[in-house]
Design a binder for these strands. Structure first.
Lengths: 344, 344
DNA sequence: GTGAAAGCGCTAACAA
DNA sequence: TTGTTAGCGCTTTCAC
């Protein structure tokens, strides 16, 4: 680290006291304008930069927040993070980004790291496997507010930003049940693994839609995937296609599974969407790359990030601010995997 | 921020002096084992955490490094960043990640932010538009080492991690010139824009390969793209296909351009790779999603990240360490866009 | 309007 | 082996 000019250096150069310099720099009212001008000029001249560590020490705050996401190799989380950074940059905060790689253990390690860095708050999307509920709670009790997004913890009271997974799943399923203008009778849900919060909720939406449209949500209308990867979607769909009940409408927990499923279906020569319609969820960048292009539910990523950031900011500025859960609307993007009819 | 127990609290609780506590915590040799034990126990009991800002202040270092990348929405940079984090986490560093969105202005802002955060070093991939060469130099002169990767600055002396773009482009072009077992005679290079370092180098490799194989690298064998997006690839390729000279082998500056080009070519009904072979560069996640799958040059992302991190660490530990440029080997991944013959 | 002095939490001489 | 003291760079009383 470079030895920058300090407040003391400025004071000496100007022949005044440290405190006056400090006041001038902080733009206090009780400094003679002339003095202020001189200080500012000298600061410029000597390329003065306040030492944030000295400031943090005395102010008892770090001006750093932490973000914990399962991964940032897909575009989903990065897009959200960008907004978070935007909001906090304006407020003079740094953002520490960590990723848990879908492991509760690494997530815990990340939380430790953030805690040791004295972050003033954390924005977190829970990792796939397991939970660190007690630790979340401990952090909150210790005065480090947490805002959950995308995948909240159900057990912990905190502000949350989510979309209404139940409702969106319901609509998505309704759409795929009448995909391409044909009423479907053999739906299938490629479910996410149990551990994930949204998994059960989306499944509820699925079952509800089936019931509404007169289809029995029997056990053969859904299958649980081991994880939420492309590979798993491919394998699971393959296994299904090996069986007796060939579905005509597939609703997938996420786009990755859907992309894998698409591949399996195409390989067998089924026509999409005529014979089998496929619907993804939570819009990945890849949805536009597949053939056919994948219909999906697009979450408002920018808004999620912005909202989560603002909720955290609120908590940081006022620790007594109440927990708030913001439910955002998502959008169903209809593409070729459910509809190849000419655009309306 | 929570009021944690301080070293002073521990000292009081144990009835000993601050310095002994400090020494015990730091595992100095000249502390009675018994005392050390007591201190450690009490630290545990009172949930003591050293205040990093006090430590930073006195040690005159931040234990933070910065990363500046053009974007992290595609998987390319995130994969590299993950490795950087891994290396620096082991050394007890935090990593501040910033993205410039292909704007030299934002890049400069990011550098300011990092400088103000007193980072001990920066790992940087230069943004597409313009350069901040003087500022890089200033940072380095001020004792903040910079390691460039992927897109280095040519004007600044610093450690760099790159792949041999010339050589890899050469090999990639050789491959596409004989794609699918057919000698091609009408190659085309979708070049990146001028501003990007690698753009010219890859073009050199292209021309060299053409010459070696008896093709005149005439002006109609290449075209410069406005940017490096899918859209631009699509439009540029469309314009080419509107012309007289229909290429039979297309070498693209990157995968995004290639994916756009693929789309344009397919739309016109040309068969890939039989009529037109397409080669990407620098392997995006999407290369496996297109149809046909895209042949590309895969950079060793993990190794790039690890190497860049280690080079920076070297500089941080020893500011007099010489600048080093590490040239890594990439790999050509042959897929359907250049070869549909049965796998060897 | 300005300066002197104390202190944030920590480390590191220097003594004892 | 331990305690005392000073000081990192900054802010903020409390005087004047």
């Amino acid at each position: 680290m470079i030895k920058h000019a300090t407040i003391k250096d400025l004071a000496q150069a100007l022949g005044i006291s440290k405190s006056t310099v400090s006041r001038a720099l902080a733009d206090h009212s009780d400094v003679k304008p002339e003095t202020k001008r001189l200080v500012l000029e000298m600061a410029e001249k000597m390329n003065y930069r306040p030492n944030p560590y000295a400031q943090n020490l005395i102010r008892r705050r770090s001006k750093v927040i932490g973000v914990v996401v399962p991964e940032f190799v897909n575009s989903f989380f990065p897009r959200i993070i960008i907004q978070i950074q935007k909001v906090f940059e304006k407020e003079g905060f740094n953002v520490l980004i960590t990723q848990s790689g879908e492991s509760a253990e690494i997530e815990l390690k990340n939380l430790h790291l953030l805690e040791n860095s004295m972050v003033e708050g954390i924005i977190l999307s829970v990792t796939e496997k397991g939970r660190n509920d007690e630790y979340y709670r401990r952090l909150i009790d210790n005065g480090i507010p947490i805002v959950f997004f995308n995948r909240p913890s159900n057990e912990v009271e905190a502000s949350k930003v989510v979309i209404d997974d139940f409702r969106m799943a319901f609509f998505a399923v309704e759409h795929v049940l009448y995909a391409n203008g044909t009423k479907r009778t053999r739906p299938l849900h490629l479910m996410g693994p149990k551990g994930i919060f949204n998994s059960a909720t989306r499944h509820q939406g699925y079952k509800e839609a089936l019931s509404k449209h007169g289809i029995d949500p029997a056990p053969d209308t859904f299958v649980q995937c081991r994880d939420i990867s492309r590979e798993c979607g491919f394998e699971t769909m393959n296994a299904i296609l090996d069986g007796d009940r060939i579905p005509d409408a597939v609703f997938c927990f996420n786009d990755q599974l859907a992309i894998g499923a698409l591949k399996a279906i195409k390989k067998r020569g089924y026509r999409i969407p005529e014979q089998i319609a496929v619907m993804g969820f939570s819009e990945s960048q890849s949805a536009l790359l597949t053939e056919p292009q994948l219909s999906s539910v697009a979450q408002p990523l920018d808004l999620i990030g912005e909202t989560a950031a603002n909720l955290l900011l609120e908590k940081i500025k006022n620790p007594d601010a109440p927990d708030r859960t913001v439910v955002l609307d998502a959008r169903i993007n209809i593409r070729e995997s459910t509809d190849v009819r000419p655009q309306q």
